[in-house]
Amino acid sequence: MRWNDLYIAGVGTYLPEQVETVDDAIAAGRYTEEKKAMNGYRELRVAAPGETGPVMAAKAGLEAVERSGLSPLDFGLTVHASLSHQGLDLWTPASYVQANTVGGTGPAFEVKQGCNGLMAAVDLAASYLSSHRDLPAALVTAGDAFHLPYFDRWASEEQNVNGDGAGALVLSNRSGFARIRSIHSHSDSTLEQMSRGFQPWTTGPFADGQTLQLSSGVEDFLQNADVDLDDMIARIGGGVRHSLKMALYEAEIELADARFFLHQQLAETIVTHGICGLLGVDRASTTYDWAKQYSMVGTADVALGLDHVLAERDPKPGDLIVLQSSGAGYVWTAAVIEILEVPSWV
């Protein structure tokens, strides 16, 4: 979708104070030297007791709203995205984020689309602002905390390592420091079972009391004789390329026109082959090496990267930035934004 009147007016982030390094995890027997060499992470942040995903998302959201210069009365929508357990069962974290940021009577929605949650939420919020022209702004947040015994940040996934934190964006149909020129989402539901595997259904969360092993679903899936591994890999790569191709086409630019390319903080091998190699992205245009100090922060990586670019990478009016993410399911979202002015808070 090409946009002519959709803007980013504010960006906010929140990262807990406690730092845990890869070497700390290795010394504790929770990680290995082999994985350190293969995956490339350095350290991450660990949320304190009570710093749940929504609590951190509200803090990031408040920063984004303050930076936007908009009044809480301008917000007609709040969308919250997450990966992890949000602190309580069967409650509404999006409403918590709304109540602790902009308040008001606009709807609050939750998006659960894996690692693509934040970008999926941006896409949905953009459409909402387009169809509700009397509502000037939307707040989009993402927040996650990964704790034992439910989730082991160092071992529940074979490659990706998960840090705690949150990010937020304020979207506006009136004005902002950057214009969103295009957003494109694409899915391939034939890959849905890749993460689920062939495990039996449960009647509630954490049913067996065992720490999640997300890689087991993939391993289970790949052991099925009907699975064509080459086809699966081709489909995943095709989804990444298609979402990017369409976002670039709708923004009327080439990849080489973009000064920055912001993506998820995936393992080194995935980034090397599945992003830079697959798409032809110049690693120097990303925030990947800088963000190794935070690892993969749930679904908030793109917001963290954008905040870093604004503060530390000297963006100029006219600079183009590509945002790209994906999530199991499989859904990919890519967007192109154009810097209109250096934000006042930088």
Rank of each mutant, 00 (worst) to 15 (best):
L6S: 05
A9D: 03
A9N: 02
G10P: 01
T13G: 03
E17P: 01
E20W: 07
D23W: 05
R30S: 11
T32D: 02
M38I: 11
E43W: 02
L44N: 06
V46Q: 10
A47D: 06
P49K: 14
E51R: 06
E51H: 05
T52Y: 00
P54L: 04
V55H: 02
M56A: 05
M56P: 04
K59H: 06
L62C: 10
E63V: 13
A64G: 04
E66T: 12
S71L: 08
L73V: 13
G76Y: 04
T78R: 14
H80W: 02
A81T: 09
S82V: 03
H85Q: 10
W91N: 09
S95I: 09
N100L: 09
V102S: 11
G106N: 10
G114N: 00
C115Q: 02
N116F: 00
A120C: 14
D123W: 00
L124C: 04
H132W: 05
D134G: 12
G143T: 09
D144M: 11
A145Y: 04
Y150F: 09
F151E: 04
D152K: 07
W154E: 11
E158S: 14
D164N: 12
G167Y: 00
A168S: 07
L169P: 01
L169K: 09
V170D: 01
L171Y: 02
R179W: 02
R179H: 06
R181D: 04
H186W: 07
D188V: 10
D188G: 07
G197D: 04
G197N: 08
T202C: 13
T203I: 06
F206E: 15
T211W: 10
T211C: 15
L212K: 11
G217E: 08
E219W: 09
D220M: 14
D220E: 13
F221M: 07
F221V: 14
V227M: 07
D228A: 15
D230V: 15
A234T: 15
G237A: 11
G239D: 08
V240W: 00
R241K: 15
H242V: 06
S243Y: 01
A247F: 00
A251Q: 01
R259T: 11
Q265M: 11
Q265D: 03
E268T: 13
I270L: 08
T272P: 00
G274E: 05
V281F: 02
D282M: 11
A284S: 12
S285N: 12
Y288D: 04
D289L: 14
W290L: 13
W290I: 15
A291I: 03
Q293I: 08
Q293W: 05
Q293S: 11
Y294Q: 15
Y294T: 10
T299C: 10
A303G: 08
G305F: 00
D307F: 02
H308C: 12
P315S: 15
K316V: 13
P317I: 09
G318W: 03
D319P: 03
L320C: 08
I321P: 10
V322Y: 04
Q324W: 01
S325P: 07
S326A: 07
Y330C: 08
V331Q: 06
A334Y: 00
